[in-house]
Design a protein around this nucleic acid. Structure first.
Lengths: 201, 201
DNA sequence: ATAATCTGATACCTTCGGGTGTCAAATAGC
DNA sequence: GCTATTTGACACCCGAAGGTATCAGATTAT
């Protein structure tokens, strides 16, 4: 049963109504990543989003009911893509070599200041706090699922180290952009690998 | 030359006008720590501050020109006190034993969720970003001044590790409050000491 | 060609918070 | 007791942003 049975739905510019809506929605999400990732969620209004997306309010409310709803969508899209990129790299490392995973994380997140800010700052405040917690949980679970359990090792301690490492990566990502860490990409990844090995004995 | 020469300044409730003003200002700063540290700066208005402080707008503008100005004052007071508490502990450790410093940091910052949030989240956004950077710089400089330099060691790498450790502490502080790190205070400090030693070879 | 509908711009209403001013009650000096 | 100052409460204005509605022009189906 296709949606064609609906009364009014035309083809414009050669694209389906459904697809046009989807494109507009994506433009709004892109605008959200840009503005949320640079100015911060709290400093962005609906009109700002529309201006950045090249659309009008009308199309904002077509896809979202509020700024927070858009922010959620942006956060979800960013984190979903990140997991998609990192998980295969973890599998490739086979729980032994952390380098592929860290390289993937670097390319997928640390390389983009907007994503760094979204994860490190915006994901902890306001409505996004819930999503941020969810992402942190996912990350720690990933860590657990790929870290070899040592007999007699306390789980709580492992968990603490997982959070510690997550915080370390995040802070390095922030320092990488707004201050001067005069290091090449390879150098930074090397250091992250060292830190990882230092935390997982 | 005392300020008594001024025309109009009475004693109320047994306290000087100057001191009354100072007390009101401090009540506003306290209210700021409470609200900024729980709801976040962006979600707090002037009337909220006044309600929390038990004062009216009039006395807000007596000491501050805007919410951001109050936020700056709160941040400065918190970080100043923190440095006052931690620096002697660093000196006590004599650049060898990190435990006194980490214990002091724990008691002065990690133990209070409002301060954790202020440092980890609010200090990175909006007007406070500048102050947050300043505090991070102070912390890293402290790290450098008390970390023995190894001959041939790259400064940039040391700097990266300083940021990494700062991020680790911050993240552990966050996890400590909003999720369940089932560990005693002593245990957490023990782990932080271990992580410190792992990062400073 | 004509009607239907999609689009984009803009006008409008409403709410909320910042910021200022006024006023009565309380307290201190004389 | 009487005046002046301090205080707290409240009323008011104004601009910014959210949210809704209207309208002309462009595009497509018949």
């Amino acid at each position: 049963m296709t949606d064609n049975s609906s009364a009014s739905t035309r083809i414009y510019g050669g694209v389906t109504a459904e697809r046009r809506l989807e494109q507009r929605r994506q433009r709004l999400v892109d605008a959200g990543l840009e503005l949320f990732g640079t100015r911060g969620v709290a400093a962005v209004g609906i009109v700002d989003i529309c201006a950045e997306a090249g659309l009008t309010k009308r199309y904002f409310y077509e896809s979202f009911a509020s700024i927070d709803e858009l922010a959620s969508a942006v956060f979800e899209q960013v984190t979903d893509r990140l997991v998609e990129q990192v998980v295969p790299a973890i599998v490739a490392g086979a729980g032994q070599d952390p380098r592929p995973a860290l390289t993937a994380y670097f390319n997928g997140a640390l390389a983009d200041p907007r994503i760094v800010r979204l994860l490190a700052v915006e994901g902890r405040t306001g409505t996004l706090a819930h999503h941020g917690d969810g992402f942190a949980t996912r990350a720690v679970e990933l860590w657990f699922s790929f870290t070899p359990r040592v007999e007699g090792q306390d789980d709580a301690v492992l968990r603490l180290r997982a959070y510690a490492f997550a915080g370390a990566i995040t802070q390095v990502g922030l320092a990488l952009h707004d201050s001067a860490l005069n290091l090449t990409v390879e150098r930074v990844i090397d250091e992250l690998v060292d830190i990882f090995n230092a935390l997982v004995p």
